[in-house]
Design a protein around this nucleic acid. Structure first.
Length: 299
DNA sequence: CACGGCGACGGTGTTACTTCA
DNA sequence: CGTGAAGTAACACCGTCGCCG
């Protein structure tokens, strides 16, 4: 469901051994409570197509079934302090198993869409209930800054570790436990996901930088080696006296490079060339199993 | 005063469902 | 009655605002 902008369908994946490359924020929405890549398990990038993500059983259908019921109940929602949890309304939501950012209940200062809905729907009740940003907020500042307590943050973190998205019931239960509005819990989770992702991106970036450096260094060494070998080859007396040859060879079976500097291949030197399978110069086109043959069937 | 952290919001995309011609 | 288009609701993510330590 979540089609975010990882968007070309792929994101890079660089996993260290032992890490689960599938366990990332691209599949955070699974209802089986996949745990997000935490800060303690860095350097994971996902290669999974991002559009394959699924959310927990989409509550939308269930929500909508409850919608009619909820609309009627909205006539009760007057005079609610935005920064104080309306216990009765939470109970109502809990009863329905419903919460949404756009509902009147969970988003008193919600977005435009919800505001439009609220205005139109609330007018259907016994009394006209109009919410607007200036109406439902008690005055001075449009954005009251509420600092969560340490306990609240700890509980939220704990919950986030368990599952980084919440279904409506979980959200309401958590909100009730924390004494917050469901919308606040929801926003906290949204922000937490965003920050986790940002942090992960930074870690990934750092890792890629290091990879790049390593590869550059490796490349430099190989270039140097090639230069040396070329120089050696162009020098006739060295070339003729070479025994064994100093060119790199690769065993076609194990694909290990046998080079003169390689400690792992050092014992091979003592073997006569014709009896040492590792001395065979690797020629993929001479292989009896040329993989590309299958692509070019002979007529 | 500047700055970073973070709660909150608006915009937008996607999906599922409903309504209607 | 079946079907496709349009409308609606819910949710997620992203970028940003702005309060506060």
């Amino acid at each position: 469901m979540v089609q975010q902008k990882d968007e070309l369908g792929l994101s890079l994946s660089l996993s260290f051994p032992g890490s689960s490359s599938q366990q990332q924020y691209n599949n955070i929405n699974n209802n089986n409570h996949n745990q997000m890549a935490h800060d303690s398990t860095p350097l994971e990038l996902n290669l999974m197509p991002s559009n394959t993500t699924t959310t927990w059983t989409h509550p939308a259908s269930h929500d909508r079934k409850m919608e009619a019921c909820r609309v009627d109940r909205r006539s009760f929602l007057t005079g609610i302090d935005v920064n104080r949890i309306p216990a009765t309304t939470v109970d109502m939501e809990e009863e329905n198993g419903v919460s949404s950012p756009n509902s009147t209940i969970s988003s008193l200062s919600g977005n435009k869409r919800s505001l439009v809905n609220e205005r139109s729907e609330l007018a259907n009740g016994d009394e006209i209930l109009e919410f607007s940003r200036s109406d439902d907020e008690d005055g001075d500042n449009s954005r009251k800054k509420l600092r969560l307590t340490k306990d609240q943050s700890a509980i939220l973190e704990e919950s986030f570790k368990e599952h980084n998205t919440l279904n409506p019931k979980q959200k309401i239960a958590l909100a009730k436990r924390l004494g917050l509005r469901p919308r606040q819990v929801e926003v906290w989770f949204q922000n937490r996901r965003a920050r986790t992702k940002l942090k992960q991106t930074e870690v990934d970036c750092e890792f890629l930088k290091r990879c790049c450096q390593t590869l550059t260094e490796e490349n430099r060494k190989l270039q140097k080696e090639v230069q040396e070998l070329r120089a050696l080859k162009s020098s006739p007396q060295f070339y003729m006296q070479m025994s064994p040859p100093t060119t790199l060879t690769m065993c076609p079976s194990c694909e290990r490079v046998a080079g003169p500097q390689s400690a792992t291949t050092e014992p091979l030197r003592s073997l006569p060339m014709n009896t040492n399978p590792h001395r065979l110069p690797f020629n993929p086109w001479a292989s009896p199993h040329r993989p590309l043959d299958a692509l070019h069937p002979r007529s």
